[in-house]
Each structure stands twice: as C-alpha cells, then as structure tokens.
C-alpha cells in the first residue's frame, strides 16, 4: 500500500545520535567536497576553461550526498544533468570528474558526453543523456535485471521536480511498482524547472504523492537536512534490498544559481534566493556537529585544505590531459 511520510518538518526527530562520529564526519566531508568541486567547476567555466555548459548542484548537496552515501560499490546510480557531484559521492576520482568537464581523454567517456552528463562504468554510474527522466527508465531496467538475478543491490536515480511531469517518470515508477524493484527515485525538488515554477508544473504540494498513483512508497523530507535525507534514503535502500520495493524520496531544496552557467535566473525573486541561502545545508550541519562536539574550526579548516589540495591536483591533471584526436569521433559507435 502507498504510504507517505512527510518529514519536511521532522528533522528534530532524526535519531542521528545512533550514527557513528565517523559516518557523521564522512557525510560532512562529502557535502563540503561536492560544494567545493561544484564551485570550482563554475569558476572554471567562467574562466573559459571548457565549452558547453554546467548545471550547478550548489544548495542541493544534502540530497545529493545523503541519498547515495550508503551505497555499496555494486549498487548503481543513474544520474541526470544536475548530478555531476553524485559521481564524487559514488567514488569517482576527481581527476576523472574534472577531465569530464574539459572533454579530455581522461574523462570516462573520452570527451564524448557533455561536461555535466557524467557516468563511470566501473562504478556502475550510468552515463546520462540530456533527455529528462530517461535515466529513471534505464535505472529501473537495471533494478529489474538485478532483482531477476537474485542480487540484493539497489539503484539510486536522481531527477528534478520538472522531471516528475513527464510520462517516462510515471512509466518507470509504474513498472518498478509492479515488480517491487530495488529502486530509490530521488526527486530533488528545487522549486524550479529551468524557469518554470513548481505551481505551473503540478497541482501537488508534495512530489512524493506521485508515488501514490503507482502503489509505491513516497517520502518527502527537508532536502537541506543531511540527516533527514540520509535516514530516509537508508531506510528506503534497506527496504529495497529486502525485496520490499521502490521508494520515491522527495528532497525539498533549492538551487542557488541559475539553471545552468549561462542562465542569470532573473525570473526568481531575490528574496526567495536569499531566504534559501540562509537554509544552506552545510553550516546547518556544521552547527549540529559542533553542538555534538564533533567539529571545530580546526577540523573545518583541515577538511577544506585537504579538499582544496585534491581539487588543485585534479584540475592540473585534467588540464594536462590531452584532447581526443578527431578520428576518435568514429570510435564506439558500433560494438
């Protein structure tokens, strides 16, 4: 039966106290790493270091990290355009991530796919197309295959609020419901689909209600609360592994910047943006960790310094990595 647990205001109930300090700090480090890599990607774009475009995830890190942090290596991720950082969460080396931006041969697809549409085959991250919601169907097919093989692996697939309107989203959920597939659909509801506000996207308030129509579980959480996301995702993943079927997890969040790096996002009210920046998931978690004596300024600095070093090295590597030869355009069309 469809259930919906609206935890958007329930962060205080999160039984995070049972999470180990290592795990809590790990989640923290990963959020900071995603933030810093993303900001670096934006700077590099502005510096003209790569062509194409980039879809920043800044502001949405709690959903991005919390949903996939507990995955095993054999689990799959089916990302979309705003999920370049999900590759980092799943364990892709930063060298590959930055080579991806530049379209260099050291990117996993040797420069064929666009900067933000990154996959990593050996880590089971499916290289996405730009088609919104297509990744949900492919991810669902992977889950179907794994279930048929009797494996207890899961698939996490990300999408945005806009993606929940398109038919393929519903075809995927419906199929996953029929076969009780080990799927976690993470809907990063950032209130905007490019320049279309949520009120013109759907009459729903909670996008987890989309699950009801397909007889599957839907959960909405405060998507800027890493612990709320982590807890809901872990519960969904545990259920999925146990054969109890798919979950739609709506993370209510906000993207700080434009839809892409070429979008000044003039359609949004400044007040709305500022209000959401105050709900930044990172300082919020820093306060939680400090309150629990797990974080101080020294550790914060160490975390950032270490990530800065790693990013600098990765960017240097990516810049030195060669471009593909033009003839490579003919490679990998046919098996």
């Amino acid at each position: 039966m469809a259930t919906k647990v609206n935890r958007a205001t329930a962060a205080a109930e999160t039984p995070a106290t049972r999470l180990s300090p290592e795990l809590l700090l790990g989640l923290y480090r990963m959020m900071v790493k995603c933030r810093m890599c993303d900001e670096k990607a934006r700077i590099l774009f502005r510096q003209g270091k790569y062509a194409g475009n980039f879809y920043s995830n800044v502001g949405q890190e709690a959903g991005e990290v919390g949903a996939a942090y507990s995955l095993r290596e054999e689990d799959w991720v089916a990302p979309s355009h705003r999920d370049w950082t999900s590759c980092i969460v799943k364990g892709a080396p930063l060298t590959a991530c930055f080579a991806q931006l530049f379209g260099k041969v050291d990117s996993p697809d040797r420069g064929k796919s666009t900067p933000a549409h990154m996959g990593y085959p050996s880590l089971h991250i499916i290289t996405p197309a730009s088609t919104i919601a297509a990744q949900l169907m492919i991810g669902t097919g992977v889950a179907w295959g794994m279930k048929r093989k009797g494996q207890d692996n899961v698939v996490v697939s990300y999408c945005g609020d806009g993606a929940t309107s398109i038919g393929w989203f519903h075809e995927a959920l419906n199929f996953a419901g029929v076969h009780r597939l080990p799927m976690l659909y993470v809907v990063q509801n950032n209130l905007w689909a490019e320049s279309v506000p949520l009120r013109l996207q759907t009459a729903l308030t909670d996008l987890s209600d989309r699950a009801k129509g397909h007889g599957i579980t839907g959960v909405s959480v405060d998507g800027n609360d890493i612990l709320a996301v982590y807890e809901a995702a872990t519960r969904a993943i545990t259920r999925a592994r146990a054969g109890e079927g798919p979950t739609v997890l709506e993370c209510k969040t906000y993207r700080w910047y434009g839809h892409s790096e070429i979008d000044p996002a003039k359609y949004r009210m400044k007040e709305e943006v500022e209000a959401w920046k105050k709900k930044d998931p990172i300082p919020r978690f820093e306060k939680y960790l400090a309150d629990h004596k797990l974080l101080d300024d020294q550790i914060k600095k160490e975390v950032r310094d270490e990530i800065t070093r790693e990013i600098d090295e990765a960017v240097e590597f990516a810049e030195k990595s060669p471009y593909p030869a033009p003839e490579e355009a003919f490679d990998h069309i046919w098996a």
Partner: peptide, 25 residues
C-alpha cells in the same frame, strides 16, 4: 520471469530492456 507481459507503456518496455542489458541480460 523470461516472457513478461509488460504494462501498456512503450517507453519503459525499451527502457527496462536497456537497463537489463547493462546487467548481463
């Protein structure tokens, strides 16, 4: 298991097939 009547939805018929092919089917 191997001969599946799918829902009436052409997108997921192909989408599910693609995904299953990625895990060896």
């Amino acid at each position: 298991e191997r001969v599946l009547d799918s829902p009436l939805a052409e997108g997921i018929i192909i989408g599910a097939a693609i995904g299953a092919s990625l895990v060896g089917f």
